[in-house]
Design a protein around this nucleic acid. Sequence first.
DNA 1: CCTAACTTGACACCGGGTGACACATCCAGC
DNA 2: GCTGGATGTGTCACCCGGTGTCAAGTTAGG
Lengths: 203, 203
Amino acid sequence: MGGREPGLRERTRRAVQQEIVETANGLFVARGYENTTIEDIAAAVGMSRRSVFRYFPTKEDIVVGKFDFVAQDMLVALRARPAAEPVWESLRRTFDLLVAYVDAPGQHEVAEPMQRIVFAHRGLLASYLEKLQRMQDAVVSALRERAEASGRPYGADDPVPGAVAGAAFGCLLAAQHAWLAGGAKDSFAGTLDRAMAAVAPRG
Amino acid sequence: MGGREPGLRERTRRAVQQEIVETANGLFVARGYENTTIEDIAAAVGMSRRSVFRYFPTKEDIVVGKFDFVAQDMLVALRARPAAEPVWESLRRTFDLLVAYVDAPGQHEVAEPMQRIVFAHRGLLASYLEKLQRMQDAVVSALRERAEASGRPYGADDPVPGAVAGAAFGCLLAAQHAWLAGGAKDSFAGTLDRAMAAVAPRG
DNA sequence: CCTAACTTGACACCGGGTGACACATCCAGC
DNA sequence: GCTGGATGTGTCACCCGGTGTCAAGTTAGG
């Protein structure tokens, strides 16, 4: 991340955010997303409705906001991959961060129902897809940098890097979908491997 | 589509819907999406706020609702492709319906700014992505049918057909992105061709 | 002409989200 | 130790998207 040593202010803020997320997730899985109002969350945490909005811009962000961080980390991870590595492999390794998030043994019991909630609700799914899209845009930038560093830069409006990244994220989403549909029994990593083995960039 | 002879009721309904869309699009382009309230639209069309919601479930649907129809048509188109054709080619041809929508010479002047509006607004982009996702789900079903008919069905939780479809839609989105970023000068079809040439299913 | 189905407008209401203001707290610097 | 400014919070008022309800109006069919 950017600033070294987050500082006390930022740390307490993160702590409150974390508490809101955990409390809210509990309510969401118990009563459902739409049946839980911001006021319910505020009351459960012990603050006012207004203050909840000071920590999260929207209700949806309480659920999918964390992916902004994952996106940043993924970018760093992608930039750290060796330049000689095939792009598809680099992307697969970049996704390991998301995989770790999903396959994490400790949080598995809470992460999976939340995923189902995301995929079940219109606005939430839309919001998640939009986050992935932003993530993807960043990946495209990284891909361009990499191509430039290796001496074969893409043209400004070349759709190719976007297509490669788009295909990879498409596989990611498909894997998530299939994994959830299959009851989340297998490892997510394995499902993603199979998905990404079915497609490959040309050249 | 389904019922033969739409009937008077349904036809007038479609006409009103069309008028709402056109009036609203005019306001959106002129004053921006967020600066245009449902009441503004209702007033411009000459009906009450409530009635607008009788024709469109949400404000976003006024913009992206038409893609539900495109999705249905795309499904039909995909099913009509010869079974022997390579999958990637079938998908590219299926996208021709969307291409026709974008490259259409008549509506080009209104379609392009609307596309920019969609890509510029959080909720709108999210909504559009969600529509594409639903479209994609349908495509996956068609891919499964095709594989079954050719004697090599996929397993129930196999992520492969989803990955192929996801990759194709990823290319589609990337092409749209690059096309808009490049000022929509080239033909969209050509951009999409280049995007889909950069990736291919394995096997 | 009368009635039943459908459409519409008007009104009330909910919930997400924002702006403004007042109050408390905490941490300077004097 | 006091004071003053930054920061956090609650309260209130408001906007807008979206829904339920009901009464009035329209249209088609007997």
